[in-house]
């Protein structure tokens, strides 16, 4: 029945998948809130250079990718502060430079091959090593600690940065922390989902969750549940059907988004109807004589 649990490589892949399912939406929600949904994609590109360096220096590519992705995310945050006018061009240089650098370094190394490259770009189950699992566990713990422990502060900074500065919060430090945490998440997800599809797992579960939620808290919990469900389902499907896990996971997440959107539409229509009847009651009254329209509970 649960035959997919037997091979040790699948146990490692499933553990990594669960951690990705939790961490990617957990940091992704703050990126979506700041309307920087594609930041994860940029970090994924930069992390490629780290993977290439790992191969070239024959060290663990996960740690090397983490190092380079963190450095890249810090540079991106600095560009956001200082380079307002030509910021997008500078970011483009960083993204494509990172990608090209990675491809070049992997080809220069003795151990790296195109097959290796593809597994990092699109994810692969069989390549999650014991060593990777340790790295992924440590990094995932850091991401959960930051995204849950500092949720109030990160919410405020991502909701309204200017206001957050006037509350005296260390906004720059918190922004840097979000960037670094996103970079760490990219490397956590790299093995299973692949660098090109990491960003999808940060954004799509959040987008799906917010179709049916009214609060940040519910969106957060629901996005993590959706993320974990699709990474697990995708990993198992990939085991039986021999399809790339990253693509399977992302397509499942998009399916979840479509289903929840379809469910939410009648819900929104009913809410709109309730609000409509509220307006009906007041049309013939003098504006100054009627109570505030929002005194009417929905």
């Amino acid at each position: 029945m649960l035959e997919f649990l037997n091979p040790p490589f699948m146990q490692r892949a499933l553990l990594a998948a669960v951690l990705v399912g939790i961490t990617a939406p957990a940091i992704g929600i703050y990126l979506v809130q700041r309307r920087q949904a594609l930041m994860g994609d940029g970090i994924g590109h930069v992390a490629m250079t780290g993977v290439g360096l790992g191969f070239l220096l024959s060290t663990n590519p996960v740690w090397m990718a983490t190092l380079v992705a963190v450095a890249g995310s810090v540079v991106m945050e600095l560009i956001r502060w200082y380079g307002r006018t030509r910021g997008d061009i500078a970011l483009a240089m960083l993204f494509y430079g990172g990608m090209a650098g990675g491809v070049m370094l992997i080809n220069l190394s003795d151990t790296g091959s195109n097959a290796n490259l593809t597994s990092f770009l699109f994810g692969s189950l069989s390549t999650v090593s014991e060593e990777d699992v340790t790295a992924i566990l440590v990094l995932a713990a850091f991401v959960v600690l930051v995204t849950v422990g500092l949720r109030r502060q990160l919410f405020a900074v991502s909701q309204d940065e200017e206001f957050a500065r006037v509350t005296g919060l260390p906004v720059r430090a918190l922004n840097l922390l979000v960037a670094v945490t996103a970079a760490v998440t990219v490397t956590v997800a790299m093995r299973v989902v692949g660098l090109l599809l990491v960003s999808a797992l940060m954004v799509v579960p959040v987008a799906a969750a917010q179709q049916i939620s009214k609060s940040f808290k519910v969106t957060f919990v629901l996005a993590v549940v959706i993320g974990t469900a699709v990474t697990l389902a995708g990993t198992v499907t990939s085991y039986y059907q021999d399809v790339p896990p990253g693509a399977t996971i992302v397509l499942l997440a998009i399916a979840a988004f479509i289903v929840l959107t379809a469910l939410a539409t009648p819900l929104a229509r009913r809410r709109a109807r309730d609000r409509g009847s509220e307006a009906d009651r007041c049309t013939l009254e003098v504006p100054a004589a009627r109570p505030a329209p929002d005194d009417v509970s929905v």
């Binding site: 929600i29 979506v32 809130q33 700041r34 309307r35 949904a37 500092l150 109030r152 502060q153 919410f155 405020a156 991502s158 909701q159 309204d160 206001f163 957050a164 006037v166 509350t167 005296g168 919060l169 959040v206 917010q210 939620s213 009214k214 609060s215 940040f216 808290k217 969106t219």
Partner: peptide, 22 residues
Amino acid sequence: AGGVPATIREVVASGRLSRTKL
């Protein structure tokens, strides 16, 4: 509003951070 749904209470509570900080 931001990019993610939030309740009135969640948004108003963020104003209290100038006292609670971390």
